[in-house]
Amino acid sequence: MARIEMQIGGFGGQGVILAGLVIARALSLYDGREAVFTQAYGPEARGGASASGIVVDDERVDYPYPLHPEILVLMSQEAMTTYLPNMRKGGILIIEENLVHLDGEPDVSELHKIPATKIAEELGNKIVTNIVMVGFIAKVVGDRIGLKKESIKKSVLEMVPAKVRELNEKAFEMGYNYEEA
């Protein structure tokens, strides 16, 4: 596994920063991978847009920002406009199906869709949308980036406040076990 770049884009309040952080942290601390986590950088981070970047490698990561991510997670329409054009052709695209509407067929090898916000709402709190998404990401690309289920779950539970641990665990499992239509 050489260098893999991943980006999660959305709007402020969706928790895309925490989502990126827990994934990179799990890769780095529990899965023996080299991983860097960064927040959206430069001119693309305007307005309420928010994005996190993860770069994973076997060796120490040199340039820490995603240049042309092969894994792109989109949680808002604006994020799609901003980040999709920069995506590596033939990569894996994951979208929040109720918030992102694709124009035409993107040039990707795989397209995955999940109604993460709706799932979170059904669980009782929209705030765990990001963790539903993390669960889904772990399922879809976990093997490809070297992310084990136990590690990412551990990372999530360590990073969220104690009183919402149970809710987050449920959210993670819902995302992980989500069956795409």
Binding site: A24, S28, L29, A35, V36, F37, T38, Y41, P64
Partner: peptide, 9 residues
Amino acid sequence: ESTGHLFEK
């Protein structure tokens, strides 16, 4: 700023 804000092991 970049080094200060990026996360790594």
